[in-house]
Design a protein around this nucleic acid. Structure first.
Length: 598
RNA sequence: GCCCCCAUAGUUCAAUGGAUAGAACAAAAGUUUCCUAAACUUUAGAUGUAAGUUCGAUUCUUACUGGGGGCACCA
């Protein structure tokens, strides 16, 4: 209710300024010249009018214009208490009663956000791993980003389907299969106790080792490196196996199904601990032929063309891109073909979605430019809405992570480390000794995951980020645990607050620190929208951190419970409650738990 | 060679063309008979280089330097 009043007030101010300029200086400024923004932290005020653009019309000094406008507004707008001028900036302060009124009439968070599912349907793809090795730190960024963006879009009023494309076929899985056949001695996750994805990954590494040894042997006997790579028996076996798989060979298919099932069981555990989920899975083995059919169907109409050798291409040179191969001369497909098939299948399954969002690393920027262009050429109107949520790589101090060089940071190991560190810190602080052991374990995990998630999400997705395994992730400062801690402390206040009698807020002067918190609480809907428009949990993280800082500063400098001043006490408890709800809500969108105690 | 992205304190990250470029970590100092000190309050420290557009540029344009990525009948 008061949001509307605030907006109407701002609009009224704009009209007032416009009118006064018309009367005094003979010219009304264009809308863009009336710039109203929030006041910067270091200055006093609730919002600021930038007068520089108005100076041209007024032909007066910026300070003079600001002074004139300031007086005008104080005299004409009830909610404005005072103003100050710094250079060309007119900082305006609202009255305390505006803020106390605003708070006492504040409605629930959901009622301040767009109505659920009112803005149409979207699909967000994320994770999409290969099935030959375990998930690593790069996948963690992908998963957290995709999950959080999905949740943010939901809260911004969209219906969101979370999905992935499981890269379950191809030479990579055949490599693991061959190595398992040769060296595995029938090892299973049950027989060795190894997590399924780890087991399959182990044989992928074993393959690579054997392959390298064979290459070495061949080059020693006089072959060139290139020849050796092609002629090594083990790679030829893998390729032969892939052909058999494509031909539907029963024995190969069975092994493929078995080993993939191991991997999925392993992935499921990792996803569960990460706290991410999916509404619908797509498997490459189901979509690649579909894509191939679609391509074949569109050769005659000229969208694709066939070369003499039988390969099929798409000419995108008129769109500033290159020629793109979509079917090889031997009739097999490439990634692009599968992605075409997957996209079309998704729109058949969910005809109402108006946008596909792909959470995939920025090394594939070109791939998605091409994909979207091809879909457009195929005549799909939704193609131009597709969005590649392109994120930067996670680098180590030594450079890029490389699985073959053993420099990957394993997802499960990292999560376990984070949890252990949370346990150490929590135990040292000794605040939770009365909790049950199982409750403690849950909490350690939630704190460790908060540190990890916030660490990854606070960085602008587009930017690459650095992870240094030597300096493990912080738990102090601008971190997930810090935000959780503030939330927990707020809950302690609210538990005590329940026993106090709530009275209407009296008229009293607000402290600047109280206003700072309220300003931020009020800003939530704008921030959700900004995060959604930019597909950026980082925007939300920055906001959340500002809010938490502001609340802590308030908390530290003034008492909440006060027997002498019931109105002020009730006000501060309500302010605490709203800050707590806002923090909790944001944490949920980031996939972070908001503990009651810690 | 062609194309794309990035460059901010010692380090990791912020800043719809607006103020005195914000934080955190690391460094230095202080705050607990009081609601959780995983906190709060101070101090010191940065826009790669050179032009341009603008009343105003970390932000837009161009060149240069340095780093990353992409240009496969790989995935």
């Amino acid at each position: 209710m008061h949001l509307i009043i605030y907006k109407a007030m701002i609009k009224g101010i704009e009209q007032l300024v416009s009118k006064v300029f018309q009367e005094q200086y003979g010219e009304a400024p264009i809308a863009e010249s009336i710039q109203i923004q929030e006041t910067r932290k270091d200055f006093e005020g609730d919002f600021t009018i930038v007068v520089f653009p108005l100076v041209r019309i007024a032909k007066r000094k910026p300070e003079e214009v600001a002074e004139t406008l300031g007086n005008l507004l104080v005299n004409n707008v009830l909610e404005i208490e005072k103003f100050n001028v710094v250079k060309g900036f007119l900082n305006i302060s609202l009255t305390s009663s505006f803020w106390t009124n605003w708070l006492s009439n504040l409605s629930s968070i959901n009622s301040r956000l767009p109505k659920a599912e009112s803005r149409g349907e979207l699909m967000v793809e994320y994770s999409s791993p290969n099935t030959n090795k375990p998930l690593h730190l790069g996948h963690i960024r992908n998963n957290l980003l995709g999950y959080s963006v999905s949740e943010i879009l939901k809260s911004a009023g969209y219906k969101v389907y979370k999905t992935q494309i499981v890269n379950d076929r191809g030479i990579h899985i055949c490599k693991s299969m061959i190595a398992w056949e040769k060296f595995g001695n029938g090892e299973t996750p049950e027989s060795s106790g190894l997590k399924g994805d780890k087991l399959v990954g182990k044989y992928y590494v074993a393959f690579d080792k054997a392959y390298k040894a064979e290459i070495l042997e061949l080059t020693a006997s006089g072959k060139t490196e290139e020849e050796a790579k092609k002629e090594a028996p083990i790679i030829q076996e893998a390729q032969a196996m892939l052909m058999k798989w494509e031909g539907g060979d029963e024995k190969v298919t069975q092994l493929w199904e078995t080993m993939n099932a191991w991997v999925y069981a392993g992935f499921d555990k990792t996803y569960a601990r990460l706290g991410v989920d999916f509404d619908k899975l797509y498997y490459e083995s189901n979509t690649y032929l579909y894509g191939k059919d679609k391509v074949t169907d569109n050769i005659e109409n000229g969208i694709f063309y066939k070369k003499e050798d039988g390969s099929v291409w798409c000419d995108l040179t008129n769109d500033g891109l290159d020629n793109k191969l979509v079917i090889r001369a031997d009739g097999t497909t490439v990634y692009m073909t599968q992605d075409i098939g997957t996209a079309l299948l998704r729109l058949e399954d969910f005809p109402k979605i108006k946008q596909l969002i792909y959470t995939v690393g920025n090394e594939q920027d070109y791939h998605f430019k091409v994909l979207f262009k091809i879909l457009e050429k195929l005549g799909y109107s939704w193609a131009s809405n597709c969005y590649h949520l392109s994120y930067g790589m996670v680098d180590l101090p030594t450079g890029k992570m490389k699985s073959r060089e053993g420099t990957v940071v394993d997802a499960d190991d990292l999560m376990e480390e984070m949890s252990q560190k949370a346990k150490e810190i929590t135990t040292d602080l000794g605040k939770l000794e009365d909790l049950e052991e199982t409750e403690k374990e849950v909490l350690y995990n939630s704190i460790g995951m908060a540190a990890l998630k916030y660490f990854m999400l606070k960085v602008d997705p587009k930017k690459k980020m650095l992870f240094n395994p030597e300096e493990s992730i912080d738990f102090n400062g601008n971190t997930g645990p810090f935000i959780q801690y503030t939330h927990a402390r707020i809950q302690a206040i609210l538990r005590r607050g329940k026993e106090r009698k709530s009275v209407p807020f009296d008229e009293f002067e607000l402290e600047e620190k109280e206003k700072s918190v309220l300003r931020l609480v009020k800003k939530l809907p704008e921030i959700i929208e900004e995060s959604a428009v930019n597909y950026s949990p980082a925007v939300l993280c920055n906001y959340l951190y500002d809010l938490v800082k502001a609340y802590n500063s308030f908390y530290q400098s003034m008492p909440i419970f006060d027997d002498e001043n019931a109105g002020q006490e009730s006000f501060r408890i309500e302010l605490t409650k709203q800050a707590g709800e806002t923090i909790g809500f944001c944490l949920t969108l980031l996939g972070i738990n908001a503990p009651e105690r810690m």
